[in-house]
């Protein structure tokens, strides 16, 4: 991998899953370097699983993943060590270590992998926390923060080694619209300032429209679409159109066939309270 070039991620004939169970098969895709690629799809379609395979947290069932010209399956220990130090990850719930303060969480990769003196580490950590608006929360523990703050702190930790590759697993899920938009803005600023390859897992269409340069849509155990945002918006594929227009699938049979539960069948009679 070139030192300053944001690397491409190439997926060739990839089948991913857990144990013998394949979740997505036949993935042939390129996530271009220096761009934000959004992996889109319904719940449980394998978006996070794909990222975990790219991070080599699970072995692939078939095919290969090439990051910056290196097949991660054949990369030796030292190679993987170097690659991982160029990667930053924001997990779905931040995955901050509960026993460490926010400052210590963000400082962890610096303490483990660099010879920086403590003063410089603190300076860098404060700068990254400042980037996500959490500089005043250095000494707070993760359980003292809201979900959105934990996500932002996770992003600061992912950024602290100045990575060339940043993976964000559902960065805006569970956030209010304003915070979500701010996080999107932050990702765009990071891409612009640090020239990095970003892979964002999401099913948030507004977020996808705000940040995506490249989109990969997963569904039904395969890749349904890959290409630019404009191309995706113009698609006439029925499933993708429904997904993009947020339309529910039409059903021939009614779903609510059971009558409402009779209050008389309840173990405790609450009728008089409900009548009031």
């Amino acid at each position: 991998m070139q030192a300053n070039t944001p690397p491409d991620i190439i997926l060739e004939g990839l089948t991913i899953g857990y144990g013998e169970h394949a979740v997505v098969s036949g993935i042939d895709a390129v996530l271009p370097g220096g761009k934000i690629s959004v992996i889109l799809g319904g719940s449980g379609c394998g978006k996070s699983t794909l990222v975990k395979h790219i991070l080599k947290l699970h072995p692939v069932l078939a095919g290969r993943i090439v990051v910056g010209g290196h097949d991660i399956d054949t990369l030796d220990r030292r190679g993987m060590h170097c690659l991982r130090q160029r990667m930053g990850v924001l997990f779905q719930d931040g995955a901050l270590l509960g026993s460490l303060t926010l400052g210590d969480n963000v400082a962890l990769p610096l303490r483990e992998h660099t010879r920086l003196p403590e003063k410089d580490i603190r300076e860098r950590v404060l700068s990254k926390l400042g980037l996500v608006g959490l500089a005043d929360f250095y000494d707070y523990y993760p359980n003292e923060l809201s979900g959105g703050m934990r996500k932002r702190a996770g992003l600061a930790r992912g950024m602290v080694m100045d990575p060339q590759l940043l993976f964000c697993d559902e960065p805006t899920s569970g956030l209010d619209p304003v915070t979500a938009a701010e996080l999107d803005q932050l990702l765009l600023e990071l891409k612009k300032s640090f020239e990095m390859t970003m892979v964002v897992v999401s099913h948030d269409l507004d977020s996808m429209r705000a940040i995506a340069d490249h989109v990969l849509v997963l569904g039904a155990g395969r890749v349904l679409f890959q290409g630019g945002l404009a191309e995706l918006e113009a698609t006439q594929d029925e499933y993708l159109r429904r997904f993009l227009d947020r339309k529910a699938q039409e059903r021939s049979t009614p779903r609510l066939t059971m009558p409402p539960l009779d209050q008389k069948m309840m173990k405790r009679d609450c009728g008089k309270y409900l009548d009031e």
């Binding site: 975990k52 991070l55 947290l57 993987m80 060590h81 991982r84 130090q85 990667m87 990850v89 997990f91 779905q92 719930d93 995955a95 901050l96 270590l97 509960g98 962890l108 990769p109 483990e112 992998h113 930790r157």
Partner: peptide, 15 residues
């Protein structure tokens, strides 16, 4: 730590 992805977070930080 294992079920809340903290162990995975350590691995991707190369720790």
């Amino acid at each position: 730590m294992r079920i809340s992805e903290q162990v995975d977070a350590l691995r991707v930080m190369d720790i």
